[in-house]
Structures are given as C-alpha cells and as structure tokens.
C-alpha cells in the first residue's frame, strides 16, 4: 500500500515540476508582459497545487496536510491578485498586448 502512495506522490511531483518548467520557459520566451503572466500563473497555480498534493500524500498528519493546502490557497490568492495588478498596471501605462 505504501508503495502505491509513493508512486502517486512521485507522479504528482513530476507533473508539478513539468508545469513549473513550462511556466519558467514561458516567462523567458513569451513576447510581452501579458503572455508571460499567463505562463507564470500556470506554474504558480497548477504546478504548486500538484506539488502540494504530492507532498500532502507524504504528510505525517492531517494537520500538516492542511497547512500545505493553506499555503497553496494563500499563494493562489496572492498570485491571482498580483497578476491582475501587474497586467492592469501595464495596460494603464499603455503597453499594448502582443499580436502575432
């Protein structure tokens, strides 16, 4: 049984790492601030969520797992708000969204 949980953990962690890699790649390669934010939020929201899920499976108690989920929720809140503020600030400064 333990091995199955470990396997799930590894799969979730790897999937999370893939999201972080893709997000970083997007941050470095995408053409403007809006598309970069789009890439970044995937890493922050889904990537971190998968990693937290993988870690929560290994947690010693429900309290620890709850704390991990709480961290994820706080990052979701901060990430979403800050992305909106950055994008809105960029729009206000007259930075046009990139078109092919």
């Amino acid at each position: 049984m333990i091995a199955v949980i470990d396997l799930f953990s590894v799969l979730l962690l790897i999937a999370g790492a893939v999201f972080f890699l893709a997000g970083t790649l997007g941050l470095l390669r995408f053409p403007d601030v809006y598309t970069r934010l789009h890439a970044l939020t995937k890493a922050d929201n889904v990537g971190l969520g998968l990693i937290i899920a993988g870690l929560a499976l290994q947690a010693e108690s429900w309290a620890v797992a709850g704390k991990l989920v709480l961290i994820w929720l706080l990052v979701l809140l901060a990430g979403a708000s800050v992305s909106y503020l950055v994008a809105n600030g960029a729009l206000k400064r007259g930075i046009r969204p990139w078109k092919s």
Binding site: L74, L77, A78, S81, Y84, L85, N88, K92, R93
Partner: peptide
C-alpha cells in the same frame, strides 16, 4: 499613484483577506 490608484477592488479584497491572516 501610477498603477494602483483605480484598481482598488481586487487589491482591497486581497487586503481584506490577507491582513487578518
């Protein structure tokens, strides 16, 4: 002033939720 002035609703929600935490 430049960027945060009129974007208050999202920022205010963030403050409402984060400051107590």
């Amino acid at each position: 002033k430049t960027s945060l002035e009129t974007t208050s609703s999202v920022l205010d929600t963030l403050v409402y939720l984060l400051v107590p935490v």
